[in-house]
Each structure stands twice: as C-alpha cells, then as structure tokens.
C-alpha cells in the first residue's frame, strides 16, 4: 500500500476529505518553495503536489503561469525538483509531482521515476498525459512503486472515465470545471455530477481540483470528494506577499482555513 493509499484510508476513517496543496518547485527560489511547502503542511495540508515549472503550461491560469515563469527565470532546473520532493516528503506528507509530460520524457521516463522514488516521492499527476499515451510511464511507475494520477473532466465520456480510473492509482484527479487552474468565486456545479459518474466505475479515491480557494468552498467540495485540491490560491499567497515571512504566514493561515473545510466541521 502506497503512502497515498494509507492517507486515504486514514481520512476515510476520520470521516473527512484529504487536503491536497500545490506549490511549484523553485518558486520564488528552491529554498523558499521548500519553506512554503513546510508552511502548508504545518497548516494542515495532507498531501503535497510539487509543481514542475514548464515553459508551456497549457492547463494553467495566470497565477501558476506567473510562478512558473519566475522559477524558470531564476534558474530552476528539473533536477532541483527532487530536492524539493525530498524536503516535502520529510515533513511526513505524501508528496507527488505535478508535471507536464515533455520534461519527464526529456529527463528519461525511467530515470525520472527512479529519482522520484529515491527522493521519497509517491507519484506523478500528469495534466497533459492521458493513459492513451502513458505506456512508458505506466511501466516505470510499476517498477518503482509510484502512483499514477490521471485527470478526468466533465467532458470525459463514461468509457474514458472507466479507462482512466482503471489506469490510475493513489487517487484520480477530477477537474471541477472545463477550464484551466485558478481561483473561482463559485464552486462548480459540474463537479458533483462528474464525481458521481466516476463512483459508478471505481472505488478509488477522487480528488477535486480547479477553482477552490477558501475553507467554505473546500467544505462544499468535501461533501462529495475524497480530496480537495488547492493550487492557485496557495501560490497567490507567495506571489502577493510583501516579504517571505508574510507569504509563509498567509499560506499557513489559508491551509488552516482549508483544513477546517475538509474536516466538514
């Protein structure tokens, strides 16, 4: 059983949803991205998604794009991500990387998997890699005991939901809206239906992401999902902060608010 599986056993026992928090590696610096992750785990994040900055992030809205651009401009290298993963995993929170596919393919799929496992990482979330094209990653993840989180969307057909759920492990990432990452004022009306369609074909845990930015929204989503995924709102804490400690405080405060939400209290 993977660290991610154990987390979901625990959160189901505790009758709550898990809180998944995203921050990009190397933003604004490698050290500060680690500090940000430690702050969000301290605030109550259960599972960490480390973003891998990429030059062409087509699934991301302006906030995460800006963070990725800053990280790359500051000299982020793909090999840096494993240091960030190791530091994140050291907090005790299961840690996965969210990455577009080309950097992994370029690094070498098997080598990436080996280095991720060695760093204590649990798996990958792949926003532009569906199971259709994932043969090499499926093989490498099996070999190194890593979880594969593929995405599903409101537009996914029932056949694709079943196929994607079957190929996934750890948890499945349900995108709540048709759109890119970024905070939204209202939670999606499409998400409950998508999750319920997914429940027809799998009993694997389902995380819901895209647009959740506060505790109230997290509480709504926690009513029907196994995990609530928050990205842009956390990244924004660092983007908007006047200095590092203010940013870390803002992350901790937001994570506490979100955690209260997922506890359905």
């Amino acid at each position: 059983m993977s660290a991610v599986d154990e987390l979901f056993v625990r959160t189901r026992d505790e009758n709550r949803a898990a809180l998944v928090g995203y921050l990009p590696a190397g933003f604004p610096t490698k050290a500060q991205s680690i500090a940000g992750i430690e702050a969000m785990v301290d605030g109550g994040v259960d599972l960490v998604e480390v973003g891998l900055p990429y030059s062409d992030p087509v699934m991301d809205g302006p906030v995460i794009q800006a963070a990725a651009e800053q990280a790359l401009a500051a000299g982020f290298r793909v090999s840096d991500v494993f240091d960030v993963v190791a530091a994140s995993a050291a907090t005790g929170a299961p840690t996965v990387i969210m990455t577009y596919w080309n950097p992994v393919e370029r690094y070498g799929v098997e080598r990436f998997a080996a280095d991720l496992a060695a760093a204590g990482g649990s798996g990958l979330i792949t926003p532009d890699l569906t199971p259709d094209e994932a043969g090499p990653w499926i093989d490498a993840s099996e070999k190194y005991g890593l979880d594969r989180t593929f995405l599903v969307a409101p537009s996914s057909t029932d056949e694709r939901l079943a196929m994607t759920a079957e190929a996934s492990s750890g948890f499945i990432y349900a995108t709540a809206v048709m759109g890119v990452t970024g905070a939204r004022e209202q939670t999606s009306s499409l998400a409950p239906e998508l999750v319920s369609r997914l429940r027809q074909v799998t009993d694997k845990p389902v995380g819901v992401g895209l647009g959740v930015s506060n505790g109230a929204q997290a509480r709504e989503v926690a009513e029907f999902a196994d995990a609530v995924i928050v990205g842009s709102a956390l990244v924004r804490c660092l983007l908007d902060a006047p200095d590092e400690s203010a940013g870390l405080d803002a992350i901790r405060t937001l994570a506490r608010d979100l955690r209260a939400g997922v506890e359905r209290k």
Binding site: D128, E133, L151, S155, T175
Partner: peptide
C-alpha cells in the same frame, strides 16, 4: 504525433 492533451479536450 499522437495526442498529449488535457483530458478535458480528448473527447472533443
């Protein structure tokens, strides 16, 4: 070739 795209665009 192939298709390396967000799942949301695969069915469309």
């Amino acid at each position: 070739g192939g298709r390396f795209m967000p799942e949301a665009l695969v069915a469309p």
